[in-house]
Structures are given as structure tokens and as C-alpha cells.
Design a protein around this nucleic acid. Sequence first.
DNA 1: ATGTCGAGGATACCTCGA
Length: 260
Amino acid sequence: MKIYTFNINGIKARFETFTRWLEETKPDVVVLQEIKSVDENFPREHFEDMGYRVETHGQKGFNGVAIFSRLPLEDVVRGLPGDDEDQQSRWIEATVIGDKGAVRLAGLYLPNGNPAPGPKYDYKLAWMARMETHARSLLALEMPVIMAGDYNVIPQREDAAKPDAWTEDALFLPQTREAFRRILNPGFADAFRLRVQGPGHYSFWDYQAVAWERNNGIRIDHLLLSPQAQDLLIEVGIQREERGREKPSDHVPAWVELDL
DNA sequence: ATGTCGAGGATACCTCGA
């Protein structure tokens, strides 16, 4: 089973690009971020006709996440638990039924948090604390679990082409990286770093300042695996080439293959 | 800091978010 995460930066703007990617890549499962659409306006039938179950958790204008799957989905949950007042659509969760077993999959769009300090950064840190709590409850399932998405976190210096340019940014502040490690520490692992070491691997290049042309990227799209999922890991990857295609998102897909 | 996008509101530009 191959599972992808892809921040598409708007389903309306990326309809052709994303449809072409889906036809070429044929993922078993993909979690999407920044669909920027309410559920009622999401073109679900178009993708259902392509063979996918489509579960969305959208909102007007910003944010919004989704799960697409060729395999059966069960127990879909929308929203990150822990704050009934939170109106932002950033979390969706479902159980994917594979040929050999099931995986609990979360698709997430972690808050950007800029400018820091400020209320947006406070929201980011509070959201990460909530995620830490929920991540522990997912580990308690003692089953394969994947938390995949746009984390808006640069974990280490090697995950940025120009780390010194990010020292004051909400994606790379020490408090952000510490909160990220607290989510991992109880037992999750960054799938990409289980298999690939060293600098030069990025998942996002800003539209501005010719970042792509200069390969000024950062790695912020991650798939975190529970111990039971780590045991099933076959391969990891980042589809870097997608950033050079026609009308790209500013993010590219990242993926894991599990023996499921 | 910014040479760019995307969405939405009230338009043939502006604001916000990233």
C-alpha cells in the first residue's frame, strides 16, 4: 500500500494539475491539505468516477483537508480532538483496509504560525500540544498508524537549503522543533529519515524569489509512523519533479509504501 | 525581505494568508 501526502494549494486552482497527477501516480491513498473549498463545492464526483472514495473536511477560503482512497475507509473522524471552539479544518482521520491489514491514517495541516511571536504562533503551539495528546492516544491503539501532512515544521538544519534564513520563522523556531519532537518522542518516527540521510531533500519551494530555480527549498511535509507501521515500511520518497511541472503547487507529494 | 500565488469580496483592485 502506497500512501501519499500532498498540499495542493487549492482544489479549484489545481483541478487539472491534481487530476493529471492522480492519473499518472495512481496512489492507493492520498491525504490532501489546503483544499480551500467547502465540502458542498468540492468536485467529489469527478474523483469518485476515477475510482476513489473521497472524504473531505473543508472550510471557506482557507485550509481544508481530505482523504482519497481506492481501498475501503472506515471510522472517518473530522477535526483534531481537544478544542470544540476550534473552527479551522486541519485534521481528518480514517482507517484504511488493506489486503493484509488495516492502518489508522490521519491527514493534517498544521498551522503556519507566522508571524512569531503573536496570536498565530500561540495557536500553532497550542494546536501542536493538542496533537501531542491525540498522538499518544493513537499509539495506544497498538496498530499501524500514519500521521501525514503539511506540518509547517522544518525539523533540522539539513531540512532547509538556507537554514540561517529561517531562524526567526515559525517553521523553524526552537519552540516549534521542540514541540515536533514531543509529538514524535512517545514512539513515532519521521518515515523519510528512517531511510534517507543528509541535506538536499525538500518538499516545498516558495513561489517567490525564484526559490525553485535556485533550489531554495525546505522539507515540511512529513509522514510519521507508529512502531507497528515502522515494522511494515518498504520504501519512502518525495516527488521533487512535480514542482517543475505545469501550474504546480508550491508543495510536492511525499509518500511511504507499507507491506499492507 | 520578497521578484508569487490563491481565494473572496465587491470588482475591473484590494486584503488576507501563506
